[in-house]
Design a protein around this nucleic acid. Structure first.
Length: 289
DNA sequence: CCACAGGTGTGTC
DNA sequence: GACACACCTGTG
């Protein structure tokens, strides 16, 4: 993949990505890949990623990363925001038909975040048979209760890291149930204890193809193909992972005669999934934040 | 009261 | 294997 070459300007506690025409914060955080960011009235998104608080906004064609030093950018956020992936080029390779063409155009500016593996696994276990406001609420409480404080903002609000697998394992199934996670409590605990003990090694899927990685993650209770696919796409950057949720299933039935998305869209199926998901939800007026 | 929400485990055929 | 069906909980 050809590397993108946006000009990057570093200031004291701020990084500016110039002419970021394939980076729309609103789309990045509203396309459902991430549950840890919220939107301010002025359109700025804020939250904690990789134990660092950050604010993201777009002013004209530039993306502003507030509280992000040059070192933070190079060590964390360049990778987190997938800055070395050429979305314009990948989009061209997805032009299989009118529907995906339209969805790609509509969704321009979505990027696949490179999120923490454990956080993504835990978050998408919580997401099952659940709605987004409630998922975000549970995760927020999880971080507040079992994470570490990392930053106090100008309004005096504390922001917390995502708790480690060890911390969640210590909290136990009971601790998870107290967060009102319902039947997911035993799944979260199973994931945490297997990751904390090393029974599941979250580094292993890095070296595996998508389908092998998916089988591996499904050794965790409460992890099926959908959750495994989300984790592989959003935390391992397996762009060929194609998570099929109710929305995507509807789209496949409606426009693609029930085709298998992963086969049809190929190596960038995951991008196609995000574009179609975002496109269809916006058309149906489902707003996330 | 009932349906629904970014699914998965279990039981049945 | 391909189906139903239950499942915690909050919200409309």
């Amino acid at each position: 993949m050809v590397k993108t070459k946006n000009k990057i300007v570093f200031e004291k506690n701020r990084t500016i990505i110039k002419n970021a025409d394939n980076f729309e914060p609103e789309k990045v955080f509203d396309c459902g890949q991430c549950f840890r960011f919220d939107r301010k009235a002025d359109g700025t998104y804020f939250g904690v990623a990789k134990n660092k608080y950050i604010e993201i906004s777009k002013i004209q064609s530039d993306v502003i990363l507030n509280y992000c030093t040059e070192n933070d950018y190079n060590e964390i956020f360049r990778d987190y925001f997938d800055m070395d992936f050429d979305y314009a080029l990948a989009g061209k390779e997805l032009a299989f038909d009118d529907v995906i063409l339209q969805a790609t155009e509509f969704s321009k500016g979505i990027r696949i975040l490179h999120q923490d593996k454990w956080e993504t696994l835990c978050s998408f276990i919580i997401s099952q048979n659940n709605n987004i406001p409630r998922i975000k609420g549970i995760i927020s409480n999880l971080c507040k209760t079992y994470g570490e404080p990392v930053f106090t903002d100008n309004d005096g609000n504390m922001h917390y890291s995502f708790p480690t697998a060890e911390a969640v394992a210590r909290a136990g199934e009971k601790g998870m149930a107290e967060l009102r996670t319902g039947f997911r409590a035993k799944y979260i605990y199973d994931a945490a204890s297997k990751v904390a003990s090393g029974e599941i090694d979250l580094m292993l899927p890095c070296l595996m193809a998508y389908d092998e990685g998916a089988r591996y993650l499904q050794n965790i209770k409460g992890v099926g193909l959908k959750v495994a696919s989300c984790v592989l796409l959003f935390a391992y950057q397996k762009y060929d992972a194609f998570p099929v949720d109710v929305w995507v299933k509807r789209i496949l039935d409606k426009y693609y005669e029930g085709k298998v998305g992963a086969e049809y869209f190929g190596k960038y199926a995951g991008l196609a999934q995000q574009y179609l998901f975002y496109y269809e939800r916006c058309k149906n007026n489902v707003f996330i934040n």
